[in-house]
């Protein structure tokens, strides 16, 4: 009894991009394919396409992240959209009323899209629920819930190395409980037909009913968990997990879950290792793996831009579709 997917418009097209949960394979593949097309824009002397000319995109960042904001901003600018950046300290405007006031003001300026980053799970859903009908909302990370563009970027990177997601065995190692990136990666991997998605961590960092709720195999032993895997994703360990009583020490974490060349031997010989960066060397993995040939720098800037351009243009493109047939080959001779 989950009701209609709040991300889709009446024609079943993506209007918002809040979570990958509930989307289908064609939708995700479409975004990856479009991103492929946008990659070529970076090779143009004029690194800009006129697709979203005249659109206004507002970056609403309630949680500071210069890196993520910059990629969204540049992606929007490459689509020829105008960009407003708003860094709103959560402490000053924690109350919903103020948040909605901010939205209404921006809507009055004819903003077409909000890119939202917030420390509360569900914040992007909340904004989407209260946004005017002509406005799209992109989730740029909400609490521990989802970070769908990051998840898609990771799929894009895996696809570049492995050709296809379908049939792959992928292991995600670390703090699944608090990771919005892991949730989006798991959703994407399952939707795109990965043969097996595994999560590896001590029980304190695996959320309740993870196997059933997320569709993963749960492991508590690193070597067994990465055996025969094609892709190993290492999550960043936040220092708060020690003070919060989830782990005794970084030392013991590395001893049990740190990735070393020796442990990597149980994965497939051509397995790639991914990490969102910046790496805590000697906590999540040692330098030999981090700098080794199998390590993939996850946040490839050009890939990140291409994915965000694809997501933004897909959502903005769903706006004036009332009754119109979707684009086809023959429509534009």
């Amino acid at each position: 009894m989950t009701g209609a997917n709040p991300q889709l418009n009446a024609q079943g097209q993506l209007r918002h991009f809040l979570t990958l949960d509930g989307l289908d394979r064609a939708q995700l593949t479409g975004i990856l394919d479009h991103a492929e097309g946008f990659l070529s824009v970076a090779r143009q002397p004029v690194k800009k396409v006129p697709l979203c000319r005249g659109k206004i995109i507002a970056n609403l960042f309630f949680e500071n992240s210069t890196r993520t904001r910059t990629t969204f901003e540049l992606a929007a600018k490459r689509l020829s959209a105008d960009v407003l950046n708003l860094n709103i300290s959560t402490s000053a405007t924690a109350k919903g009323e103020t948040l909605l006031d901010t939205l209404r003001n921006l809507e009055a300026m004819h903003v077409d899209m909000f890119v939202v980053r917030h420390s509360d799970s569900g914040a992007a859903h909340f904004i989407a629920r209260h946004a005017a009908p002509h406005v799209s909302v992109i989730n740029a990370g909400d609490g521990c819930h989802a970070h769908p563009t990051q998840g898609m970027l990771d799929m894009f990177t895996i696809r570049q190395h492995k050709g296809d997601i379908a049939g792959l065995k992928v292991a995600i190692v670390g703090d699944i409980l608090h990771s919005r990136v892991a949730r989006s990666q798991i959703n994407a991997l399952n939707i795109l037909g990965a043969a097996e998605v595994r999560v590896i961590a001590p029980r304190t960092l695996i959320p309740a009913a993870a196997g059933e709720a997320l569709g993963v195999q749960v492991f508590h032993d690193l070597r067994a968990g990465i055996a025969d895997c094609d892709v190993i994703i290492m999550l960043r360990l936040q220092h708060e997990r020690m003070t919060g009583g989830f782990l005794p020490s970084e030392h013991e974490y590395f001893f049990l879950f740190g990735l070393t060349e020796k442990r990597l031997a149980s994965a497939k010989p051509d397995a790639i290792v991914m990490h969102p960066g910046p790496i805590n060397r000697g906590v999540e993995m040692d330098s030999e793996v981090a700098d080794g040939p199998r390590s993939v720098i996850l946040e490839q800037v050009s890939n990140g831009l291409a994915i965000r351009m694809a997501v933004m243009s897909t959502c903005l493109g769903s706006h004036n579709l009332s009754g119109q047939a979707p684009a086809t080959e023959a429509a534009h001779d």
């Binding site: 697709l51 903005l316 769903s318 979707p326």
Partner: peptide, 13 residues
Amino acid sequence: FYRDDFTHIGLHP
């Protein structure tokens, strides 16, 4: 990415 009908029919499939 250069079509003039993006706002009418969205992104080309």
